[in-house]
Simulated scan of single mutants.
Amino acid sequence: MAVLILSGVLVLALGGCVCVVWAARGGPRWVRGVAGATLAAGELVRRAKRTRRSQHPTQLGDSDS
């Protein structure tokens, strides 16, 4: 079951990447919509990652010497 879910996520991610490239080359309106949604989802993931990092800093770069 997990393999099926992960496969579906992979297919959606690859499809989104294809739409981003196609939209950059002037694809139809629906492709530009999917590309916009893909880029927005990527930005949300990046912001969530930054927020988690600022809440839980690593110990590697936190030396006071």
Rank of each mutant, 00 (worst) to 15 (best):
A2R: 15
L4N: 06
M1F: 14
D62E: 10
W22G: 05
L39G: 04
G33H: 00
G42K: 04
G26K: 07
A23F: 10
G15K: 00
V34H: 02
D64F: 15
R25H: 08
A37F: 06
L4I: 14
G42W: 08
Q59I: 04
H56T: 06
L14Q: 12
V3D: 08
G36D: 01
R29I: 14
L39N: 04
A23T: 00
M1L: 05
S63E: 13
E43R: 12
S63I: 09
A23I: 07
R29T: 13
Q55D: 09
R53E: 05
R53Q: 12
V18P: 02
A13P: 13
C19G: 02
G16I: 00
G26E: 06
G27Q: 00
Q59R: 14
S7V: 09
A37V: 12
R50A: 14
A2P: 14
A13S: 14
T51K: 14
V11C: 08
G61W: 12
G36N: 00
W22V: 12
L39W: 15
C19Q: 13
E43Y: 10
G61Y: 11
T58W: 09
W30K: 00
D64T: 13
G8T: 07
T58A: 07
G61R: 14
T38F: 02
K49R: 15
D64R: 07
V3R: 10
R47N: 02
R50S: 13
